[in-house]
Design a protein around this nucleic acid. Structure first.
Lengths: 340, 340
DNA sequence: CTGTTAGCGCATTCAA
DNA sequence: TTGAATGCGCTAACAG
């Protein structure tokens, strides 16, 4: 039988209340007594039962997710995953609120962040652009004891407790490697399309991609990155224009959103033989992969990201550290054959 | 506030004990009363608190994992993941036992299966060869109320409650697609190496691979599969012999274990330009990928598989159904750039 | 067939 | 600075 607080109390010769005080680091216990209890804990190998503790204190974890509004398919899938996690709230003892903010509007995020009451929320997960004001607002929350995790795109330099997302430099490198191999000796140019270079994930992908191409596939030169604000129509126009202007383009890497536009741009020029790699499995990209319009999709599992964010935020709130292995988000490569 | 058993008792005008009886489907309650309670449950939207229930009944979940002994790296990694899950036993309320059995020995597995006491174990996860005797032993356990899940390789036709592993036909197809693209127009032969065609996962991979090559890459012909019993030295010899005998071989797909032998066989013939795809990230394969000896590794995340098996077994024991999305094991493709 | 009562392991008043 | 007593939501004897 695992030792309980009763065993510790007996071993240390004190009452339950005192044991509880030292276990939870509350004041009002003599140095001596604290040590006696700690010795007993150590000797008996006591591990507290979190579920019993949470039952006794009727604990729930109020969490808020901040994500961009707008038509970006990936973000809508993310939102659906959060909604699905909300359904499990009674089981997880969470209480989740979603706040959507206009995309690419740092001030809006800061406003939401500043409106959060540290007394009533234990954790926040947000997808944010990499700006100084947001970084500051995040650190402010941290100072107030709120756990903050970044989602999808990191906020380097901030004091967020965790980043729930992929290594985007590695993702860019992976794309470079795929495109290099798929082009297999053809020489020419690769068009790189990005959403916003203010997003740290997009920046990272672009640089990883460029590094691999330069080092390993010198016959492929990069055109771009062109910035599209993740708008599908803009992507379509940019791709069309680039393709028409430059017959040497043999491949396209879309490291941002707007795959619908990309697909349309390519479809309008059926004579071009292109290797295409894009990000995120959505309705459009999935079809493009199946149809052979895309050669590969690089993906992050946003269901995993959301579940991971919840676990990590809860763990930090309890002063535990999460299982690093389980919380690592993989860089998925999907061909049409291994699509889930 | 969420309704509790007290609320239901009040609403239905009965005592706690009666509520408990109907909630847990125990006998000794009148039809009428059962219905009254069920109505109350429905009307109040009662959801029982599993953690409180498990606390009250001091429930733990005794689980046993059956895996092959021997030097197979993948299986040793799997064992390490189980060991790591055992460390979390106090938190998960599990009690895990590992049984290792000689590889490719169905009788040994059947003996372990038959020795399991349904009174003291709630769930079993096993990696098994696809044989009739094992299927029967599994079904026998199921009949005794033990939850059984297959791990890594499935047991089609059995009544196991869940398969924790990848779709191996799709994995084989994926390998075919990768090799086809990596060979990029070169024509020639592809050597296929397998462990045992009695393993359903190996069979499935072989057939998926063949299907894609035939349909999409008609310039590539298959040599094999050669069977190696997953022994590294056998793999090395088989690969060496095949390579020496047939200069037309331009690629190798090792769908089983023994990557060390494969690496040695290739290293001994540095003049050959080969595209190589293998399975499972282990110490050896990881290095081979980094060194450019392998072009890609197809992987299943065995940490995920083990955690999933535990969740699924527990959920079934509680009569819940697990979150299908979270329990799906992905077919990971790793290039050297996205290795975790 | 149904109800009363005493816990499970822990937290938290309220007194002392 | 410490302890006794009560309850979290649920289960399980034991009576009736």
């Amino acid at each position: 039988m695992r030792p309980t607080v009763h065993d510790i109390a007996a071993e240390a010769g004190v009452s339950l209340a005192t044991v509880d005080r030292v276990l939870n680091g509350r004041p009002g216990v003599r140095r001596q007594t604290v040590e006696r209890v700690e010795k007993a804990v150590h000797r008996l190998g006591y591990i507290r039962d979190l579920t019993a503790a949470n039952l006794a204190r009727r604990r729930i974890y109020p969490l808020v997710f901040i994500i961009p509004s707008g038509p970006n398919s990936f973000m809508r899938v993310l939102e659906a995953e959060i909604a699905s996690a909300m359904q499990r709230s009674p089981i997880d003892r969470t209480s989740i609120r979603i706040e959507t903010v206009p995309p690419f509007d740092p001030d809006a995020i800061v406003r939401v962040l500043d409106a959060i009451d540290p007394k009533t929320v234990t954790g926040v997960a947000l997808v944010a652009t990499d700006t100084e004001e947001i970084r500051a607002a995040v650190d402010r929350l941290i100072d107030q004891g709120v756990q903050v995790a970044t989602l999808v795109s990191d906020l380097p330099g901030s004091r967020r407790v965790h980043y729930c997302g992929i290594d985007n430099i590695a993702a860019g490198r992976t794309a470079g490697n795929l495109i290099g191999r798929f082009c297999a000796g053809r020489s020419g140019k690769v068009l790189v399309v990005a959403g916003s270079l203010k997003l740290s994930d997009h920046m990272d992908r672009a640089s990883g991609f460029a590094a691999v191409l330069e080092a390993e596939f010198p016959d492929l030169a990069i055109v771009g990155p062109v910035e599209t604000n993740d708008d599908a129509d803009t992507v379509g126009q940019a791709v069309g224009a680039a393709l028409d202007a430059d017959p040497a383009i043999v491949a396209i890497y879309n490291l941002g959103a707007g795959n619908r536009g990309l697909i349309e741009g390519i479809a309008a020029r059926p004579a071009r033989r292109l290797s295409v790699v894009a990000h995120e499995v959505t309705e459009h990209s999935r079809r493009a992969l199946a149809d052979g319009v895309f050669d590969a999709i690089i993906n992050q599992d946003c269901g995993h990201e959301v579940r991971s964010a919840i676990r990590v935020l809860k763990a930090h709130a309890d002063g535990l550290d999460p299982l690093s292995d389980q919380e690592r988000i993989r860089i998925d490569i999907f061909l049409k054959d291994n699509l889930p």
